[in-house]
């Protein structure tokens, strides 16, 4: 019997539950409105990105404020590869991830000397430098006007709306999540956590800390790059405005609210942070009949609720939604056993 921490799923019901859930999601495009399909696609993309950030920040303990920049790298790589070189998406998506991974490793080099806060600030600087390049390297990035991205196509079918695109994003997200979970229960994933918890002890037990930090940056940025690539395919037009520093903060919020280092936490956090403004939009929209001021207040409402969510979730469930989920399951088991 494999110990629980080394299983792919914590419980026996995990695999069937995941398959049922995916089937249910697959059937959604058949009847969801295009508005909610867009949201669904964005949840999928955010899940991949949050998973990537969670490998670096949650598991390896390297705080990064640069993930919006890595998203941008993935997105611009896709725009160039798919637009200029007309490559098919099966090549473009992994290649965009790889380009982001290389960029991530470059940004990871300072982690040899910098830790904690200083690394966070270095990655913050990296964000502004990447965006500066995106604005000014016009021949490649299109400057402030941005670049158009062609729709991905499969066997001659253009995945040109969210309905079809979702059927590309969903399996990709599931595969990447399974990969991340496998990583967490094998040698490289344990090395990441060891570095986060006790870097000197990790080095002494035989882990090449710098090498594994770079690996973590690379894997993490690969995920974020793939998310950026999908983001480009969904938006079809990308410009520096798509990648503000607040996007990096959104992603950090996802993994904090969802659960640091947790696969399930990445999914829950990405879903929550993506749906939150939509729920507010729906809520304030329905109230606008009685209170017309609600529409004007929407932007500040969104910001305020976002901020409060972070503060309250850190105060009341600092381990994140995933831990709450697992502990509530145990609760249900106790009376039965």
């Amino acid at each position: 019997m494999t110990p629980p921490s080394l299983r792919l799923f914590r419980t026996r019901a995990g695999l069937p539950a995941l398959m049922a859930f995916c089937l249910a999601l697959c059937s959604l495009p058949a009847f969801a409105s295009s508005y909610w399909l867009d949201v669904l696609c964005r949840i999928g993309i955010a899940t991949i990105g949050a998973m990537g950030l969670n490998i670096l920040t949650g598991s390896t303990g390297q705080i990064s404020l640069g993930n919006a920049a890595f998203l941008a790298v993935g997105a611009y790589a896709t725009a160039a590869l798919a637009g200029r070189f007309e490559l098919p998406f099966v090549v473009v998506i992994p290649l965009s991830g790889a380009i982001a991974a290389v960029t991530g490793m470059l940004f990871g080099i300072p982690s040899l000397r910098l830790r904690g806060l200083y690394l966070a600030m270095a990655t913050l600087a990296a964000h502004f430098i990447v965006i500066f390049i995106a604005v000014h390297w016009e021949s490649v990035t299109g400057g402030v006007n941005g670049l158009a991205v062609p729709a991905p196509s499969l066997f001659g079918i253009e995945l040109d709306d969210d309905r079809r695109l979702f059927l590309l994003i969903l399996p990709l997200a599931v595969l990447l999540l399974l990969f991340a979970r496998n990583l967490a229960r094998t040698r490289p994933g344990r090395a990441f956590i060891a570095i986060r918890d006790q870097d000197i002890a990790a080095e002494v037990i035989g882990i090449d800390v710098f090498r594994y930090k770079l690996i973590s940056f690379a894997v993490s940025s690969f995920y974020v790059g793939v998310a950026g690539s999908l983001l480009a395919y969904q938006a079809r037009l990308i410009s520096p405005e798509n990648f503000p520093i607040t996007l990096a903060i959104d992603y950090l919020a996802m993994i904090i609210v969802g659960g640091l280092g947790s696969v399930l936490g990445s999914v829950l956090g990405a879903t929550f942070i993506t749906v939150l403004p939509e729920a507010l939009r729906v809520g304030s929209g329905s109230l606008s009949g009685r209170y017309p001021a609600m529409v004007e207040l929407f932007a500040s409402l969104k910001m305020g609720v976002f901020g409060l969510t972070i503060i309250l979730s850190l105060a009341f469930q600092p381990q994140g939604m995933a831990a709450r989920w697992h502990s509530s399951k145990i609760w249900r088991k106790v009376p039965a056993s």
Binding site: A253, S300, M303, G304, V305, G307, T309, I310, L314
Partner: peptide, 12 residues
């Protein structure tokens, strides 16, 4: 994250 959340609330 808490101070980032705080900044969001103050801006709002």
């Amino acid at each position: 994250m808490v101070t980032l959340g705080l900044s969001s609330v103050l801006k709002a």
